[in-house]
Simulated scan of single mutants.
Amino acid sequence: MKLYKSDLFGDIKQPESFLELLGLITENNIEGSFNVKMWRGQGDINWRIDSGAYRRLAYSSNHDKNIRELDIANYEMTLLRQAKHKGFGYSKGRRLSDFELLAKLQHHGAATRFVDFSKNCLVALWFCIDNSLDKTGLLFGVHTDYLGGNLEGSIRNLDDTYNEFMLGLSKYDVPFFIEPPVVSPRIAAQHGVFLY
């Protein structure tokens, strides 16, 4: 199989047909483990995989370029306060937890620390090729052996406040898998999950 040399991601396998791509997707690269992956498709291989919150702060003209955890937490708490003030903290008459509200905001275009992934490689492939036909896209898979979190459902303590939720995440040194509750039909249709 051909290799694509990327300055950002190194040598990447470059399938030349859909069948070759399916072979790559179903290949188990880690002996004795499950072949479940989280998938992300992006239209330009030259884009880094950063959260929207990180990019928002890193490219803001009024912020220094050394982004710390506290900067992102303060940004997200402000985002939550603004969303609740505007009345977005409810869905079907039920008050959303901070986590649910962040998931809803993310899927409607807000910049959070969540990074969108899908459990369906074909959904991710669509995002890889949809917008940038003149660019080389990237279909990025993450093996679940390298993730923290509950891989088959919602997280525990969903009703935690933002601060409680963040304290719970601080014990992980790997990306944390989160499957949000369905607060948007769009999340369900895309088999949407997040890495946090």
Score class of each variant (00 low, 15 high):
residue 33 S to G: 01
residue 34 F to W: 08
residue 36 V to Y: 14
residue 36 V to I: 13
residue 38 M to C: 12
residue 44 D to W: 05
residue 45 I to E: 11
residue 45 I to A: 03
residue 48 R to Q: 06
residue 52 G to K: 03
residue 52 G to A: 06
residue 53 A to H: 13
residue 53 A to E: 08
residue 54 Y to T: 11
residue 54 Y to F: 14
residue 57 L to H: 15
residue 59 Y to M: 12
residue 60 S to C: 14
residue 61 S to R: 10
residue 62 N to S: 15
residue 62 N to C: 12
residue 63 H to G: 05
residue 63 H to S: 12
residue 64 D to R: 15
residue 65 K to W: 05
residue 67 I to W: 00
residue 69 E to T: 15
residue 72 I to R: 01
residue 75 Y to H: 09
residue 82 Q to R: 11
residue 82 Q to C: 07
residue 83 A to D: 02
residue 83 A to W: 10
residue 84 K to S: 06
residue 84 K to D: 05
residue 86 K to P: 01
residue 91 S to A: 03
residue 92 K to M: 04
residue 93 G to A: 03
residue 96 L to G: 00
residue 97 S to A: 05
residue 99 F to G: 14
residue 99 F to T: 08
residue 102 L to Y: 07
residue 103 A to Q: 01
residue 105 L to G: 14
residue 106 Q to L: 12
residue 107 H to S: 13
residue 108 H to S: 10
residue 108 H to I: 02
residue 114 F to P: 04
residue 118 S to P: 06
residue 120 N to F: 14
residue 123 V to Y: 00
residue 123 V to P: 00
residue 123 V to N: 08
residue 124 A to R: 11
residue 124 A to L: 15
residue 124 A to M: 12
residue 125 L to E: 13
residue 125 L to N: 14
residue 126 W to E: 12
residue 129 I to Q: 02
residue 129 I to H: 13
residue 134 D to P: 03
residue 137 G to V: 02
residue 138 L to A: 09
residue 138 L to Y: 00
residue 141 G to M: 08
residue 142 V to T: 09
residue 143 H to P: 00
residue 144 T to H: 05
residue 145 D to S: 10
residue 145 D to F: 03
residue 146 Y to G: 07
residue 148 G to M: 10
residue 148 G to Q: 00
residue 150 N to M: 09
residue 151 L to I: 13
residue 152 E to W: 12
residue 152 E to R: 13
residue 153 G to N: 15
residue 153 G to A: 15
residue 154 S to W: 09
residue 157 N to R: 10
residue 158 L to R: 13
residue 160 D to Q: 14
residue 160 D to C: 13
residue 160 D to S: 05
residue 160 D to T: 07
residue 160 D to R: 08
residue 162 Y to T: 07
residue 164 E to N: 12
residue 166 M to Q: 13
